[in-house]
Amino acid sequence: MAFSDRLLDAGEEVWAAQKDHPFVRELARGTLEEAAFEHWVRQDYRYLLDYARLFAIAGAKADDEATMTRLLGVAHRVLDEEMDLHRSFAADYGISAAELERTEKAPTCVAYTNYLLRTAYEGSIAEIAAALYPCVQGYLDVAEHMADLADDDHRYTPFIETYTGEEFREATAWCRSFVDRCGEASPGEHDAMEAAFLRSAKLEYRFWEMAYTLEGWGL
Results as ranks from 00 to 15, higher is better:
T157F: 12
E104L: 14
R102T: 13
T119S: 07
L132C: 11
Y139G: 03
I128F: 09
W174A: 02
Q137T: 01
C109E: 03
R102G: 11
I128P: 06
K105H: 14
Y163D: 03
V136G: 00
Y139R: 05
C109Y: 02
E167F: 10
H154G: 03
T172G: 01
A111I: 06
T119R: 07
Y133H: 12
A120G: 01
A129M: 06
W174I: 02
A130S: 07
D152F: 11
I128C: 02
I128R: 01
T162Q: 14
Q137C: 04
E127V: 05
Y139L: 06
Q137S: 14
C135L: 04
L116W: 14
G165H: 12
V142L: 04
R176F: 05
E127P: 07
L140V: 10
R102D: 15
E101P: 01
K105E: 15
G138D: 06
T157Q: 10
V142S: 00
Y121F: 14
A106V: 10
M146Y: 10
Q137W: 14
E161K: 10
A131P: 04
Y133N: 00
A129D: 10
E122F: 06
A120T: 02
M146S: 02
I128Q: 08
D148W: 09
S124H: 09
R169Q: 15
Y112P: 00
E127T: 05
I128N: 04
E161Q: 12
E167N: 06
A173H: 14
D152V: 08
F168I: 00
D152Q: 06
S96T: 15
A98D: 15
A106C: 09
Y156G: 01
A171H: 12
V136T: 12
S96C: 08
D141G: 08
G165M: 07
E122C: 07
R102Q: 15
L140S: 08
F159K: 01
A130T: 06
I125M: 08
P134E: 07
I160A: 05
D141H: 05
T164Q: 10
W174Q: 02
A130F: 15
R176G: 03
Y115L: 06
F159N: 02
V110P: 00
E170C: 00
V142T: 12
Y139S: 01
T157I: 06
Y115T: 01
Y115K: 00
C135N: 07
A97V: 06
Y163H: 12
F159Y: 15
D141P: 00
A97M: 10
Y115W: 13
A98R: 14
T103C: 11
L132E: 09
I125Q: 09
P134I: 11
Y163M: 04
Y156R: 03
A98P: 11
D141C: 01
